[in-house]
Write a protein that binds this DNA or RNA. Structure first.
Lengths: 360, 360
DNA sequence: GGCCTTCATGGAACCGGTTCCATGGTCGTC
DNA sequence: GACGACCATGGAACCGGTTCCATGAAGGCC
């Protein structure tokens, strides 16, 4: 269609001048700039980012790696990241890498190696040292959400503390017979979320002088996952706890539905607390420890773009042989930002009904 | 890092030969190809798609426009589209455009005009004639999911028929007092899904000789949306229908929860049917008309890539002045593919209990 | 008035590939 | 033996921008 040469010709200037006028870099007189802009507007000129990135090394686009799209937390993060990037004129290229994905190596060795983006945001995907090195070698900054990545800035919540707080809420209501339903360590693709929440639970229980043996059940991180597990746990009246701490709101919803199905009243006969702050929590009147995925997404974008701005001088496709490892750390960018969670009390939790405890 | 010139030098051939060897186009002897590939491998060469697309006009990437990410249907479509594109070596660039988005013009005039992709998939976003023209002028094929776009191939289900089938299922069980809970026409960003489903419902009712006045309630397209509406509709025993046809499974879930809350038994006292085939339907034992978003996504990608293959000869950044409108239609690509839905009967529907009908 | 600095602009190289065109060698055929 | 078809390769132009460098004009200062 129309190239910058056409604009230059129409405005009666050289390509170089047209480029300066449009990009705002370098010296251009006010009138010339106006002429060029008018000419560009007239023929509907839109710059080709390909051509520009070929020489500048900047692509104005960011790659996002994420294991799920339809799960609430990830969907929210994705929406906020996309929004924030769009605001800044960046494109977002999405790589969906489910935990058991076979594509993983291909994405790293082929797609990411193509250097199509200025930076990468990795959401809930723990990267191996090799993978981080790979990205570093490409000179592309990396920001993680949801857990620490060695040598990269990370936005996260304190899962141990959140789980401890949730458990302490139940303890403070007087519960002693508490069970934790969370994700299994086996398919713990996303950092150590599952085990951290378990650890927080155990820490709180042990601090209260309670045993934690037999108090953990794993479930799929979904509403049906919680439902199935709930039917199993609550089915036997003699082993029924007075409260359950669910590792996610969706699990908690499933547990509540299971309880209702079995005729167990929430919170009178069973208290349930979750972690997330899912919008459906209101409907289920679920007490939960709210985290804020949209804030995490927005912050990740700001962090990444700030890092890019720092590098601004350095052409990204610089030819230096390699970046010294210590130089990366010297950036001061490898620290992690911990975002707050807050307890939202609704009516799925209350003091336990006075009754004989069936469990030891 | 390493450019194709380095590879050529190492292999002892010209850039042109190296390019041919690596891309597989044109004549190269077997030994030369082997030498080049070995050299490329040795220095870890990865082609720059930017440079390539500059001359070929192909970017090996596809833009996806979608109004929501976290709603089930859209999330599923997204996952399947991304997967299918990845398989074919394409990148996916995502534009999330909520219905009321102010970014819309910016996305079309700035982001999409940058010509960073070979084609576009629009999911549940009705494009204005201007917008379609815009894309056509760029010479980029367009495939829609979820409703007809003038002058572009579209993958969709027959919403009218699906709604009719769902309603007929209730009618065939003996229900006469049926209500439809669906999306409002007002915020009907996504094509005519809402009104089509309403029309299907009305057609079935009228074919059975039933009145449809006062039989429609709007709700947000979510579980809480259905829940709120359910409490309102079912709260008044004298006006309570014997069956509800929900425009989506998530609405249906909300309705079922509202019914349970009010002590109304499903399906004995109230039948509920939805449209979607949501994975949670099993848990709610919801009878539903299943559509298959992953199939829609996969098919959209195949359709788009096929269109791209057709154009293969024509360089995408061709300089012809403009494409004749009739030539677009002559492509034969503007027909729409209608995918089947299927009725999945579970236990949220049954014959109505014999009782006096309170409504007229 | 001469010199240095700052601003404005044009020419040309360059980013990293692809592709057109020209050259030359091989082989088959009449 | 000459001619044409086909294969293999190299040189160079090109895609559409950005940026370096050179040139020249205008203004400030001694």
């Amino acid at each position: 269609m129309s190239a910058i040469g056409d604009v230059a010709r129409l405005a009666g200037v050289a390509k170089a001048t047209a480029s300066r006028a449009l990009s705002g870099r370098g010296y251009v007189s006010t009138e010339t700039r106006a002429k060029v802009i008018a000419a560009a507007h007239e023929i509907g000129y839109v710059a080709s980012p390909n051509a520009a990135s070929l020489v500048t090394g900047r692509t104005q686009s960011v790659g996002v790696i994420i294991p799920f799209i339809s799960r609430w937390f990830f969907g929210e993060v994705l929406e906020s990241v996309e929004q924030a990037l769009l605001d800044q004129g960046y494109d977002m290229t999405l790589y969906n890498l489910p935990p058991e994905s076979l594509e993983r190596d291909r994405v790293f060795d082929f797609f990411l190696a193509r250097k199509r983006f200025d930076g990468i945001i990795s959401v809930g995907v723990a990267l191996s040292e090799r993978e981080v090195d790979h990205l570093h070698r490409l000179g592309r900054p990396l920001v993680g959400i949801g857990g620490p990545i060695r040598g990269a800035a990370t936005i996260e919540i304190d899962d141990v503390a959140a789980a401890r707080l949730a458990t302490e809420h139940l303890l403070s209501l007087g519960h002693r017979d508490i069970v934790h339903v969370g994700g299994s360590q086996v398919d713990e693709m996303d950092f150590h979320v599952h085990s951290n929440r378990l650890r927080g639970f155990q820490a709180a229980m042990m601090a209260a002088g309670l045993s934690v043996s037999g108090c953990f059940y794993s479930a799929e991180f979904t509403m049906p996952g919680g439902y199935e597990r709930g039917l199993a746990i609550l089915g036997d009246p003699r082993r029924r706890p007075t409260a359950i701490f669910a590792a996610s709101d969706e699990i908690a919803f499933g547990l509540i539905l299971a309880a209702r199905e079995l005729g167990i009243r929430v919170p009178t006969e069973l208290s349930v607390i979750g972690i997330d702050g899912h919008p459906h929590a209101e409907m289920f009147r679920l007490t939960t420890l709210a985290q804020h995925p949209r804030a995490q997404g927005g912050l990740a974008v700001r962090t990444l773009l700030a890092e890019l701005a720092t590098k601004d001088g350095t052409k990204l496709h610089t030819r230096r042989e390699s970046i010294a490892p210590d130089q990366c750390d010297a950036d001061g960018t490898s620290d992690s930002i911990v975002l707050a969670t807050n307890l939202v009390i609704r009516s799925s939790t209350s003091a336990p009904r006075a009754r004989v405890t069936h469990r030891s």
